[in-house]
Design a protein around this nucleic acid. Structure first.
Lengths: 227, 227
DNA sequence: CCTGCTTAGTGTCACGGAAACACTAACCCA
DNA sequence: TGGGTTAGTGTTTCCGTGACACTAAGCAGG
């Protein structure tokens, strides 16, 4: 039978997501305010329970589509959390993911499980439900580590973008200023950017050249980083 | 109640371990031969089902004590695996860990679930049950990554060891030769080794100085690496 | 039309970590 | 006493990283 068999203990499995976005030059995390017990009224990471027949990735993608209307890319697994007492209802395994989404793509709206949703600024976070503070910390560390090995964040930019915009994005993610010349040197040396031949229009200063991400070069050459 | 509540679907949760060891100058993985369906007779990673009331770490430690009589250190989580069809019995979530143990500490012996146990050489592996080939690959990548950021493998050496032995260990783990002078320079520069004042005895060549790992320096200074 | 504001765009130098490279020293044994 | 085996030791080159300041271009406002 593909259904249950007798032996092992069974556990509810939650999938939670640390969704980062950039807005107003600062790094933000998507939080929901819980509309049900436990932790009613507390802020928490978006997520929900895994359903029979879906993989963890499918589960978290479904939950994020339902709760936030977004499909993050990349979506990387952070790991499983099982600390005793992390859920007062009993033993619940939580598998957490981390992703980056455009802030403007997300329309905060109430949900069956969420009374409210909002982007919180990293460094000014409310107390979180469950062990979500720990999960968020793991997600933040992973995000920072990922910027060192992969060209993260391109999905947050428009098709064609200036190097200034790319640098501003990375400064927001890392939370510190970067040297303009060093950044440009590495970004161009990555061989992942193609000059579109276009320039900015209607800006009150010298117009910047616009680049696009070369997905093919990225796929072929493996990595390549911007800083 | 701390017991069940009605809502979400529940899943059996397996904990599996990729246990590496070094023997005869080569990197080995501990495998068991399955003594039960499914995959009866196939080689697999050691592991078992999580029981109610224990964390994932506790579960995998228990399974490894039962099945292999070892307590690996470090024991790092690789992540959760949920590919559809990975277990023919139905949806089973597997959370995998990676660890390093002394080969001689492990006494292969049959078990309720394991008909046999053996150290397999990396690069000459039998076909594995479930999705364990994928899990093993993740474990191997994690091991290599870990050597770059932490002094892994010290638990495989005796209390006092020579730099030659340390280098041989790293060469086995990495699967490639290392330059002796560069290795010694970095190892000593790590500030994690203390000269015991002892030297080898009864060897048919110049006796090497013996060092010990300074756990206190490691705890205080955070990282420090050997290569 | 000229001035000022704002962002784009560009090169060099110093430092430190990483890798390549070969010989002498000490000890045992036959 | 000579041969075998591992211990132990410095220097140089190269590359990636980070620090650092000025000119160019476009628009706005007077």
């Amino acid at each position: 039978m593909s259904a249950a068999w007798a032996g092992p203990d069974r556990f509810p499995v939650a999938v939670d997501a640390v969704l980062f976005g950039v807005s107003a030059g600062a790094l933000k995390v998507l939080l929901i305010r819980r509309g049900a017990e436990p932790f009613l009224g507390r802020w928490a990471l978006p997520g929900g329970f895994l359903r029979a027949g879906e993989t963890l990735e499918q589960g978290v993608v479904r939950e994020l589509a339902e709760e936030a209307g977004v499909r993050p890319d990349p979506l990387v697994q952070l790991g499983a959390f099982s600390a005793p007492g992390r859920d007062p209802r009993g033993p619940v395994l939580s598998v957490a993911f981390m992703g980056l989404v455009r802030v403007e793509d997300h329309v905060p709206h109430a949900d069956t499980d969420a009374a409210d949703a909002a982007w919180a600024t990293m460094g000014a976070l409310p107390p979180l439900a469950f062990d979500h503070a720990e999960v968020l910390k793991a997600g933040h560390e992973r995000l920072l580590a990922l910027t060192r090995s992969e060209p993260v964040g391109l999905n947050l930019l428009p098709e064609a973008f200036s190097l200034g915009a790319l640098q501003a994005l990375y400064e927001a993610i890392l939370g510190r200023p970067l040297d303009k010349r060093n950044f440009r040197r590495k970004a161009l040396a990555s061989n992942l950017l193609r000059d579109t031949g276009l320039t900015q229009l209607g800006v009150a200063h010298r117009a910047a050249r616009l680049y696009r991400f070369d997905a093919e070069a990225f796929a072929n050459r493996g990595a390549g980083i911007f800083l």
